[in-house]
Write a protein that binds this DNA or RNA. Structure first.
Lengths: 194, 194
DNA sequence: GTCTATATATTGATAGAC
DNA sequence: GTCTATCAATATATAGAC
């Protein structure tokens, strides 16, 4: 895959991110060398430093853009019944998690390899995502259609439960994605007392 | 913390494991050097190789003994009502997870750094632990005290939910452990349709 | 924008003295 | 059982040519 000189900036950047995401998720941040990432893309190691200040910033970019993508993609309508909104959140979260299992894994696993500043930034984004779910539970309580004594704890519990699908779900396995969503919806509906 | 020559084999072994567990959980397996572990214990790096074949075997020992401890500590009584057994499992799992958050974190995150053989061994132990929970759900269905259409999926969902407490629980935070258990018990009871 | 070449540091693991 | 010393490999990051 060795290439001669030549500029391909528009595609090299995304390729670097794709390779880094895949390798970091598979082997762990510290276990992956810049040389490995470069080799996967088909450039030399030094070239990576035209796209990222250093290895840590590359990881931070991956986590930040993942959370920003999620927040941008989630569309909620507070005027709808809370149970409908909860069902939509569940479908959204499971689908996006299964679409991007590597980014999800990294987001939970590699926060510790960020600088304090970057870590705080990602944590704030994640908090906004959690708040989006908690808002639904609070609305359900107000409506009287849910019974959730501690909405903050329930939020953390439900997100952990839903994200857990990435631990065991395998494409082409026993269950397709719609079936998984249906089963989890039964569990979640019961958990919130609906 | 430099020490002179002298044998302290009985305490050095556990100290190495403690230091490795703490450092691996905090920084990641690949990010931690044998020299760091040795420095934490107060011995020289070469000494570690009297206690472990290599770095990977040290990680495997930590994960294996963690799962074996869990399996040995969990005492179930199949003659009791399934809901009582489920409540006991929940208390056991949350308590042990919060007692040993580093081992729990490692067990979920660092499987990828094991050899295929070691990984299969740990996976088998984890599977036994999951089966212990699923047996309770199956019993609940049979009794008619629970409604769990897919006991395998519910098992994975509940374990992910319960283990998630290690992501946010902080000693001395808003909630004490009993309160956490009480809130999660409400969620779990609802999820299994009881 | 990408390359080659390299400095500087650190790694996992081993050999042999005590 | 622990130490010192060291090998060989590999790491991140930078400088300068093209």
């Amino acid at each position: 895959m060795a290439r001669t000189h030549g500029s391909r900036a528009e595609i090299t950047g995304p390729l670097i991110r794709d390779a880094a995401r895949r390798l970091f998720a598979r082997h762990g941040f510290a276990a992956v060398s810049m040389r490995q990432i470069a080799a996967e893309v088909g450039v030399q190691a030094g070239t990576l430093y035209s796209y990222t200040a250093d290895k840590q910033a590359l990881l931070a970019d991956l986590l930040r853009s993942h959370m920003e993508d999620l927040l941008a993609a989630w569309q909620d309508d507070p005027s709808r019944p809370a149970l409908d909104r909860l069902r939509a959140f569940l479908g959204f979260h499971i689908q996006t998690s299964l679409e991007r299992p590597e980014a999800v894994f990294l987001s939970y696993m590699e926060l510790r390899n960020l600088t304090a500043e970057n870590r705080a930034q990602i944590a704030a984004l994640r908090r906004r995502y959690e708040d989006a779910l908690e808002a639904i539970l609070i609305a359900g309580e107000a409506e009287g259609t849910m019974a959730v004594p501690d909405t903050r704890l329930a939020t953390m519990a439900l997100i952990a439960m839903l994200t857990g699908v990435t631990n065991w779900y395998r494409e082409g396995g026993r269950l397709d994605q719609d079936r998984v969503v249906a089963v989890y919806w039964d569990l979640v509906r019961g958990a919130v007392g609906a």
